[in-house]
Design a binder for these strands. Structure first.
Lengths: 196, 196
DNA sequence: TGAAAAAATGAAACTAGTTTAAGAAATGAT
DNA sequence: ATCATTTCTTAAACTAGTTTCATTTTTTCA
């Protein structure tokens, strides 16, 4: 709105795909947001803490993971450009999370703090629709993930995933991909050795 | 609204937990709904067909499942009282589904057809909020399910599930529980034999 | 630039869960 | 009541993926 380089542009563009906001509504919205650079390996959330905000990723990559009973990192979610990421269980209940959210690379985020989200939605009700549609998309993706995990063997998941997202598969360390795909790094090495 | 036994009461009660509707809004809403009795084993959706509606379950139980590459039924979701169920991927895109939705028992549903959902939301914008909150709950549950599946062994999943939902575990055939929990009925029998 | 840390590979022993196949028990329709 | 279908169990052989541990390669950063 003012000349400050529009640090929220990526989010405003994303919202415009779903709802049309008046300039005045955009102004209100921006007054509720804040922008943050998150250096690689920084944690936005750790177990025992309450998830403080819903994070919109302008650029970079975050991961959501927890430690399993067998003490392994289990990645449940990667957050990329134009996705919101949070532990919605903790965010909604304001109870302590079991999860980590960590930057995989240097990442730019726009945050909407839990404490003000309801106030924002009361002031700009059109955003109810926007967030409904965002959640619809997220829920659908989550269902697809459950299907993916149950439908294919580890080897097939790896092959299909790298075929579908070749650039992303390069972007994260292999052990993170293995975790996300639901097997060990050793098994991934085995698969790759077999392919050559 | 009129004296017709309030077939939509369960849904109206559910909505009232999240938003307050005026009598006039309730009237509009009800004009968009329809009620249906679904006999056990009836399919509401089959592969190749487009998911026609979002279904609210007043009573009974539905299951959402697909056939895996190894030709097994894989249940991804059970729908119980006061949950909405649909293949949101197909519902949103109006493209053919890969899924079945089938009644596990005689079930009463209230349906909101895909073709009129947008019109309803335009006329009763408060429902944007209601459906946002419903999706938030569904998405959170879906994330918990992914965590559950990745965190525990098959045996632990069975033990924890039956401890948490003893009545539900009785309500569905064991082979459905096995599928939902991500293993074979034979393995489930093995677990039970071990417990005795 | 070089030392330390992080990430990836390899191989052998192992195990959680599958597969196949057959029979037993329960449920449902007539 | 009875036959047919659906659901559940048992057992043995098998396999996809894990575990453990050692080695190599790559990245980080002072």
């Amino acid at each position: 709105m003012n000349g400050s380089l529009m640090i929220y542009q990526s989010l405003l563009d994303h919202i415009r795909r779903y709802v049309d906001l008046e300039p005045s509504e955009i102004e209100v919205l921006c007054s509720f947001l804040s922008h943050r650079h998150v250096a690689k390996k920084t944690f936005l959330l750790e177990p025992g803490k309450v998830c403080a905000a819903n994070y919109f990723i302008s650029s970079g990559c975050l991961r959501l993971f927890f430690i399993t009973t067998s003490e392994q990192e289990q990645i449940t979610h990667f957050g990329l450009e134009n996705w919101w990421i949070a532990d919605y269980g903790s965010l909604t209940s304001q109870r302590p999370s079991q999860y980590y959210i960590q930057a995989v690379e240097d990442t730019e985020i726009i945050e909407l703090k839990a404490s003000v989200q309801d106030e924002l939605l009361a002031k700009v009700p059109k955003l109810e629709r926007y967030f409904r549609l965002v959640l619809l998309r997220a829920y659908t993706a989550s269902q697809r993930r459950i299907e993916f995990m149950n439908n294919l063997s580890g080897e097939d998941r790896y092959n299909q995933f790298t075929a579908m997202f070749p650039d992303f598969a390069q972007r994260v360390p292999l052990y993170m991909l293995a975790s996300y795909l639901g097997f060990t790094p050793q098994f991934l090495s085995k698969i790759r050795a077999k392919r050559n």
